[in-house]
Simulated assay, not measured.
Amino acid sequence: MKKKMILAVLALGIFASSCSSDDDNTSSVNSNLTLNLNGLEALGSDFVYEGWLIVDGSPVSTGTFSSIDFPQTFSVNTTQLNEATTFVLSIEPAIDSDPDPAATKILAGDFSGASANVDSNGIVGNFSASTGTYILATPTDADDTNEESGVWFLDNSTGTAVAGLDLPTLTDGWKYEGWAVLDGTPISTGTFTNPTVADDNAATSVFKGDVGNGPGFPGEDYLQNAPAGMTFPTDLRGATIVISVEPSPDNSALPFTLKPLAHAVPTDASVHTAISMGIGPVSEISGIVTKS
């Protein structure tokens, strides 16, 4: 069943040009499609959610929405609804001149009779086996007195630094992002798709020191140019370290709802020492889509 769903989702890209309004030869009689989804977050004014039916391998839009209050019901062509094999939910620009589905797809599931159980596992990533390790250190400066002001997602417990994050490869339209939550304010460590190499802002971070870019893994030194209301260097002991999954392009400067890994840094944590992360607050989004 999962293979069937993935193949159907791939059809969104292959047959995207056919996702138009009801075909002239299709009955104009409509029926209801009801969405009852859990875990979505508001996208702000720049993006909306859009539902898609896979009909004969091609995507057909069921309409856009921005409210995350459910259930929500949409009027959809009856013939297309009856023939639909899969439902997919994507994130689209609010002003969108492209009728094709965006790469950022967040939910999918195959219909069984009149309903489909949809989730983010097959279309974004399955995070049930994800693990994380990090150290406190500030390798981008020459000062050894502020090592608790940086976080790096690596494991040095064997004496040699290796990747500290074991995460699934994300589908197109998504990136990972690390965060340090200081006094309730999340500050990004940078985005990445591969946890075994440096993150996207390794060479351009305004927070890091002036000596270098740090090790070849995701992470950040909070040493200078602190946001308003904060002071760098800081002390990450007592802060919360988070790995989130972000839409790309991103809808917000804040963490997205998917957060598969998180950990409160112990107040007595030692620097340069491997610290294990725990399961995050949200690793899956799910729901039920019903034809009626």
Rank of each mutant, 00 (worst) to 15 (best):
N25K: 03
S17A: 13
P266N: 09
P101C: 07
A114F: 01
T131I: 10
G122C: 01
A102E: 08
F217Q: 10
T138K: 00
L35I: 04
G51V: 06
N38F: 08
N251Y: 07
A274K: 10
G125D: 11
S67P: 02
K105N: 15
G190C: 07
L81S: 05
I241E: 06
I275G: 01
P168D: 11
I54T: 11
S112H: 05
K105P: 05
V282R: 02
T86S: 13
A198Q: 14
P93A: 09
L165M: 03
P281Y: 01
I6H: 04
P266S: 08
I285E: 04
S205W: 11
I106G: 02
G109L: 07
N201P: 00
S20N: 06
D143L: 06
D141P: 06
P59S: 12
G178P: 03
P249V: 08
S286T: 12
I135T: 09
M5K: 07
L154G: 10
L258I: 14
S270D: 15
I243Q: 02
V48Y: 11
D199K: 01
A102W: 08
T64C: 10
T196R: 09
I68Y: 00
V211R: 10
N156I: 15
A203M: 09
T133L: 03
G219N: 03
L261W: 04
E147L: 15
Y222C: 10
E41N: 01
N156L: 12
T160V: 15
W174A: 01
T133F: 03
A161T: 05
T145M: 10
P168T: 06
S97I: 09
A228R: 09
I241P: 05
A8D: 15
G51S: 02
A108G: 13
L261N: 03
S21F: 08
D183K: 12
D210H: 03
N77T: 09
T169N: 14
D141W: 14
D172Q: 12
G51C: 02
V55W: 01
A163G: 15
E41Q: 00
V124I: 14
V271N: 13
S58W: 00
D69S: 13
S18C: 04
D23G: 04
A226H: 04
V282S: 03
T104D: 02
F111E: 01
E83A: 13
T171V: 05
K208F: 00
P99N: 09
P218C: 06
A114S: 03
I95H: 09
F111K: 02
M1I: 11
